[in-house]
Computed example of a mutant assay.
Amino acid sequence: MRAFLLLFLLFPFIELALLIQVGSVIGVLPTLLLVIGTGVLGAVLLRVAGVATAWRARERLARGELPEQEMLEGLLIAVGGGLLLLPGFISDIFGVLCLIPFTRRLLVNKVRLRAAEQAMRQRAFYDSPAGQAQRPDGARPNVLEGEYERRD
């Protein structure tokens, strides 16, 4: 968590340093045009990809299926479009990676696998309450039965 916080605090400085470096190599006007161009590209791609994902989700809902893939892709499209709207080249690279269908599907599949692993880890520590099904190894859960009396 500390690494994420440190990266979050350093990110604007890294972006600014890269903008200065690119500006010194290609000039101020081309750098500004690149930053503005990627912002416009992000807005256009956000609209196009978002509409396409919304239509696929609507089709799956019409078939009676849950559109979990489309929902996660829509989230990545929103993140990618937001990153493209931010001024800077590093955020643009990550934004484009979120908007390209191939890499977006790879990221979504990685998130789904990680969520499934997390769910399996949580199920591994679940003890069924008394009176319900036994654990997979056939052992009974550790339940202490008794009575109590409250004395005030």
Rank of each mutant, 00 (worst) to 15 (best):
V35T: 07
V35G: 01
I36W: 11
I36N: 07
I36F: 12
I36Y: 10
I36T: 11
I36K: 09
G37N: 05
G37T: 00
G37H: 04
G37W: 04
G37I: 01
G37D: 02
T38R: 03
T38M: 11
T38E: 04
T38K: 05
T38S: 09
T38L: 09
T38F: 08
T38I: 09
G39E: 05
V40N: 04
L41M: 07
L41Q: 01
L41N: 01
G42V: 00
G42W: 00
G42Y: 03
A43H: 07
A43K: 06
A43R: 07
A43Q: 06
V44R: 06
V44W: 08
L45H: 02
L45T: 01
L46W: 00
L46V: 03
L46T: 02
L46G: 01
L46Q: 01
R47Q: 11
R47F: 12
R47V: 10
V48G: 04
V48F: 09
V48N: 05
V48P: 03
A49F: 01
G50E: 01
G50S: 06
G50D: 00
V51L: 13
V51Y: 06
V51S: 09
A52Q: 11
A52S: 14
A52N: 11
T53Q: 07
T53Y: 05
A54F: 10
A54M: 11
A54S: 14
A54V: 06
W55E: 15
W55K: 15
R56V: 04
R56I: 05
R56K: 15
R56C: 08
R56L: 13
R56M: 10
R56G: 02
A57V: 06
A57P: 00
A57N: 02
A57H: 05
R58I: 10
R58L: 13
R58M: 12
R58W: 13
E59Q: 15
E59V: 13
E59Y: 12
E59N: 14
E59T: 14
E59F: 11
R60Q: 15
R60I: 01
R60E: 14
R60A: 12
R60K: 15
R60F: 08
L61M: 14
L61I: 12
L61T: 08
L61A: 11
A62V: 13
A62Q: 14
A62C: 10
A62E: 12
R63I: 11
R63C: 11
R63D: 14
R63L: 15
R63S: 15
R63Y: 12
G64P: 03
G64C: 08
G64S: 10
G64D: 06
G64E: 09
G64I: 09
G64F: 07
G64A: 09
G64M: 06
E65S: 14
E65H: 14
E65N: 13
E65I: 06
E65W: 13
